[in-house]
Each structure stands twice: as structure tokens, then as C-alpha cells.
């Protein structure tokens, strides 16, 4: 079980000519689930991509550390290797490139007995994770996200999270496109990961329904690029009843 923290301090960032995040500060500890809620345009997806280092965004000020490692100075792939994972809102199609090959290239897993048998071990983990979230095992050999429905793509993101076992995961609207059964399976899998290996979660969502299956320890409301309220899960219920207007 790992202990550590993902620490965001005074983060100001955006796209060239437009500041979207205007000083975001929050800390997620290992094993915790934090929800970030907010209206359209509040900067939720920008936060996700700035943390992962998507090209096209620029950081103006602030810091992001993972167990003390300065993430903002690292390229995307090294942030991932440091233990950060982004479950994307719109997972991207990569024609001709299979999930297995990608995950082998990402980080070859080591077997429980310490021996290095990446392909066999990967195969075992992939099938195990696929069964846990009800991802059709026939899709494992398909090119990444090609010809997958929106819901299947979200299960695929969750499956990758289970195989890669990151320290911290940002889930950008992992609930969109999922039917109620899939939502339950995905929420349960992520929540189990918080105790299985102490995954820390930053779950970005519009709706409280995700939080019925993935129970947050802390809820943040993001508005106009700032965290304007932080509280327990009751805050999510309050937002659900009253809307975001009170926070803008």
C-alpha cells in the first residue's frame, strides 16, 4: 500500500492568450477519492490536461508534485511513469495499435514472483481486469478505441488503469456515455483500487450519479478556474439540488 500525495498549488494555466485556471490549490492523498464538480467551462477538463501535459496548454504559475516530484517539468510520458494516469473524457482512436502492445510499451509488468515475463503477465492482467469491469475480451486485440462505443471506451480506460496501477488517477468524466450497469462496474473497480494499492483519485464530473458508486472523501466545486468550495460528499448533494449558480 503506497502513501503519498498529489499536491496542486496555485496552478494558473490555459491556452495561449487565455488564462483558464486562475489559481487552483488542492491535495489528494493516497487512497482518497476527490471529486471535482463544476459547470461547463469552469476549467475541469483543462485541469485534467494540464496535469497530464497535453500539447497546446501552457502553465503560467504554480506547482504540481507527486510525492515531491515536480510533475510540470516532466514530459507527459514521464508523468505517467511517475505514477499519474488520465482517464480521458474522449479516448482517442489509434488505428492499427492494439491495447496489449501499447501497455507493453508503456510499462512491462513484473510477475508476482518477481520474474520478468511481460507478455504472459500482461495477458493475465488484461483478462482479469476485463472480467472485473465487464469489458468484452474480444476487444482486447482490437486497435485502441477503434469501433468502440462511448461506453466501451470508458471501460477501456478503466481497464488500463487496473493494468497500469498508477499512484494517482485523474478521471475526466469517466461516467459520460456509461449505462447504469457499466457505471456501477467502473465505479466499483476504481473504489476497490483505492484499498487494493492505495490509488488516489481526482474524479471530474458534472453529475452526482458517479458519486453514488464512487464515494468521495472530498468534493471540490470549480468555478471560473478556481476552487470556490470544498467539503464532504454532502456538498455534492447540495450542488445537485441548488445548481452551480450560487458558486459563480
Amino acid at each position: 500500500m503506497s502513501t503519498g500525495e498529489l499536491c496542486i498549488e496555485g496552478l494558473r494555466a490555459g491556452i495561449p492568450g487565455r488564462e483558464i485556471l486562475q489559481g487552483v490549490t488542492l491535495t489528494v492523498r493516497s487512497g482518497e477519492v476527490h471529486a471535482v464538480m463544476g459547470p461547463n467551462g469552469s476549467g475541469k477538463s483543462t485541469l485534467a490536461h494540464v496535469l497530464m501535459g497535453r500539447p497546446g496548454y501552457e502553465v503560467l504559475d504554480g506547482s504540481v508534485t507527486l510525492d515531491g516530484i515536480d510533475l510540470l517539468s516532466l514530459p507527459t510520458w514521464q508523468r505517467a511513469r511517475a505514477g499519474l494516469f488520465l482517464g480521458m473524457q474522449h479516448p482517442i482512436e489509434v488505428p492499427g495499435v492494439s491495447l496489449t502492445r501499447t501497455l507493453l510499451a508503456a510499462r512491462a509488468p513484473v510477475a508476482d514472483d518477481g520474474s520478468h515475463r511481460p507478455e504472459k503477465e500482461m495477458d493475465v492482467r488484461l483478462h482479469d481486469e476485463a472480467r472485473r469491469i465487464g469489458f468484452d475480451e474480444r476487444f482486447l486485440d482490437r486497435p485502441l478505441n477503434v469501433d468502440l462505443s462511448g461506453g466501451e471506451r470508458k471501460r477501456n480506460e478503466t481497464l488500463q488503469l487496473g493494468v497500469l496501477r498508477p499512484r494517482f488517477a485523474i478521471l475526466d468524466e469517466i461516467d459520460s456515455g456509461l449505462d447504469v450497469d457499466a457505471l456501477g462496474a467502473v465505479g466499483r473497480r476504481v473504489e476497490e483500487a483505492t484499498t487494493e494499492w492505495g490509488l488516489g483519485v481526482l474524479a471530474i464530473t458534472h453529475f452526482r450519479r458517479l458519486l453514488n458508486v464512487l464515494h468521495p472523501d472530498v468534493v471540490h466545486v470549480l468555478s471560473e478556474g478556481r476552487v470556490v468550495a470544498t467539503g464532504s460528499s454532502e456538498l455534492a448533494e447540495l450542488v445537485d439540488r441548488t445548481g452551480y449558480a450560487a458558486y459563480s
Binding site: R54, P75, W77, A105, A106, R107, L164
Partner: peptide, 16 residues
């Protein structure tokens, strides 16, 4: 970006 966000090195991602 998608491949790199999984931890794949840039030149390996391009080759893939």
C-alpha cells in the same frame, strides 16, 4: 499524446 499519457516514450509511440 494518448500513447504518451499511458507512459509510452515519444519515439516508441511514433513507431507504434
Amino acid at each position: 499524446y494518448y500513447l504518451e499519457s499511458r507512459g509510452v516514450e515519444p519515439d516508441v509511440a511514433e513507431r507504434l
